[in-house]
Amino acid sequence: MTNAAKVPALKLEAVRKHFGHVAVVDGIDLLVERGEFFTLVGPSGSGKTTLLRLIAGFERPDSGRIELAGRDVTSIPPYQRETNTVFQDYALFPHMSVADNIGYGLRIKGVARQTRDKRVQNALDMVRLSGLGGRRPNQLSGGQRQRVALARAVVNEPEVLLLDEPLGALDLKLRQEMQIELKQIQKEVGITFVYVTHDQEEALTMSDRVAVMSSGRIQQIGTPVEVYEQPATEFVADFIGISNILLRDGVRFVVRPEKIRMLAEGEPADVGMTVEPGRVAQVVYAGMTTRYIVHLDRGEQLVAVRQNMDAQDNAQKFEGQPVRLAWTSDHTYVLGKGEVDSR
């Protein structure tokens, strides 16, 4: 019994899937712990959605093994798996009421009407849609439909909940609200979430751990802090955050934009700081922050970000001006020994 806690919610071993000659999922090993909020992030075509469909059972892997809570489900059809999915297009049944949609999984499992109604009610409360159970999906807004889709999946208390870009269709403001709400709900119900997104910010905001995917492979698995601060590859450094990669003395390293200081004219750098001169090519005002795109005199381009607290009314005036950038070596992360020297 003490062992039960240690069995991972999801375990993938060397899972492969080809479509034609293309290896869409190219040998994935993965362990997701119980109660974890795990995110697969990557650009479109990186295989993250296919991987999710393999876990749900909509696709069969060509080889490899998939385990849910210690049970081999590799060749088990989706309707016999302890997973539930929140679909990108929500996939709500248009001919059923919201309550019937949410209760469908329980009905199929033969849960008694009374228990079912109660659990549907709780699920509606959880996603703050109490009182809308009698409506049809087409009478709801996009955000409300999204919540129904979530409630319909969570109410079954699956071993693993799969979410396929569930916030993709919502506008920015609603998306940010839902990110926080989703995370809260996940903590409340304690279900393991496997979340697919192409939005790196979303991945960093919500996840306990992130797997960065590219061309069917996992590039790095780690906490949001790890993948951001210590990217394993250039791809990860580039995909998560703004790519500021430099090659100095045969070493390739990343400097994140918020860690670069722009020195005022004549302002001395602190002891131990690296200073490089350049010229501001462009100033991009982004509300909370301002981005400065700087061409270094040595040829590369760096992006520096400044908080807009110290009222930069006319930051545009820096455009075309010479500037000095400074950073400490603590704030750089070495990628490798310059094996990709193009010059």
Partner: peptide, 27 residues
């Protein structure tokens, strides 16, 4: 018909007969 509806029904535990009865046929 949205293709994902059938997958959604299967995902919620319906076998092919139940999917046809509860989703495809009514639609």
């Amino acid at each position: 018909m949205q293709g994902s509806l059938i997958e959604a029904a299967m995902d919620l535990g319906a076998n092919s007969v139940q999917v046809f009865r509860d989703v495809t046929l009514p639609l």
